[in-house]
């Protein structure tokens, strides 16, 4: 996570760690070179940061802090808790942790994240990025355009498109029966897998772009020498490419995990969380509790538990980063 700051550090650190003011020469040079810019931030110079600070405090930090209060109340849209909200302590959390529907959703969320992000998008992205280096240029151009198009389409459109793809009378079954293969009914039998595939379709472009950018930074001489030493293509990918990509893999995994944990619209459009809650991941469960049943306090508690899962996953990925990247 430290690399993004690299340009800034490169610029500011020499100044900060420069031979300290004890040397009169360096002091004089610095004063001449950086009379205005590269200088310390003063209150007046921080003024342009105010609009962003106000927006972030009001609309991001505010709600997050408020959720820490809301999760411990019985706040509701209607009924008891709507007129006068009272603090109920950890009741919402104990309710969640003893509700089988919560555990069902938590399990489905993990299945969805592992299948669609950690395995699906990640491997599909890596595969496409590696193939891009080898495949015919025209093929690469067209295929990446299609994959990226799937990514930039609005979430609701993607939801409908993948619904038609997996539906009983949909495209996938039409193709399967043309090929003489048995048809599928994933949306009813294992809807979580259908929505996970949908998320792979929608999200692989991100990993592909991340990995292809990272691969283009790898010197091809390393591959040449590995090939000369007799390493086959798969061996080269596993022993040369993957270790070199480790920082990119760790950050990519972290980003797509956080994105996938909070996917709402795609599943909401495709299955609505059903049938019988079989694809109700935590965001959908949270939505149902907060708005269909009006339990805002309970829904917020579930949202905090969702954030907790995200935080735990992020910490795990940070451990994957090589030491020098952590600083």
């Amino acid at each position: 996570m430290s690399t993004p700051a690299a340009p800034a550090t490169r610029r500011s650190e020499p100044a900060a760690t420069a031979p300290s003011p004890s040397s009169p020469q360096s002091r004089g040079r610095r004063r001449r070179a950086g009379t205005v810019l590269g200088d310390r931030l003063t209150l007046a110079r921080a003024v342009p940061m105010i609009p962003a600070a106000v927006l972030l405090l009001l609309f991001m930090a505010g709600p997050i802090l408020y959720s820490l209060y809301l999760a411990f109340t019985d706040s509701a849209i209607r009924g008891e808790g709507a007129a006068d909200t009272s603090v109920v302590g950890v009741e919402n959390f104990t309710d969640a942790l003893t509700d089988p529907a919560f555990w069902n959703s938590a399990g489905l969320t993990i299945v969805f994240t592992v299948v669609s992000a950690v395995i699906g998008q990640n491997l599909m992205g890596l595969l496409l990025a590696i193939l891009m280096e080898r495949a015919h240029r025209g093929v690469t151009f067209v295929v990446t355009a299609v994959v990226v198009a799937a990514w930039i389409l609005p979430e609701v459109v993607a939801g409908y498109l993948l619904y038609t793809f997996f539906a009983g009378d949909g495209s996938l079954n039409a193709i399967l029966s043309t090929l003489g293969l048995p048809t599928q009914d994933l949306l009813y039998t294992v809807p979580i897998i259908a929505v996970a595939f949908a998320n792979v379709w929608r999200g692989s472009a991100f990993s592909m772009l991340v990995y292809s950018a990272a691969l283009s930074g790898i010197d091809s001489d390393i591959h040449e020498s590995a090939a000369v030493d007799g390493a086959g293509p798969l061996r080269r990918i596993w022993s040369v490419t993957v270790p070199l990509l480790r920082p990119a893999i760790a950050t990519n995994l972290m980003l797509i995990t956080l994105q996938t944990l909070s996917v709402f619209g795609l599943i909401f459009i495709m299955t609505g969380g059903g049938p019988a809650r079989q694809s109700q991941t935590l965001p959908l469960y949270m939505y149902e509790q907060a708005f269909s049943y009006g339990q805002l306090g309970y829904g917020t508690a579930v949202a905090l538990l969702l954030l907790l899962i995200g935080a735990v996953a992020s910490l795990a990925y940070l451990r994957l980063l090589p030491e020098e990247e952590k600083r």
Binding site: F59, I64, P283, M286, A303, L304, L307
Partner: peptide, 18 residues
């Protein structure tokens, strides 16, 4: 950087409530 990863979905209930 960390707040870029914050799932907006998770803050929508308190935002709505506020």
């Amino acid at each position: 950087i960390f707040s870029t990863g914050l799932p907006i979905t998770a803050v929508m209930i308190p935002v709505y409530s506020l």
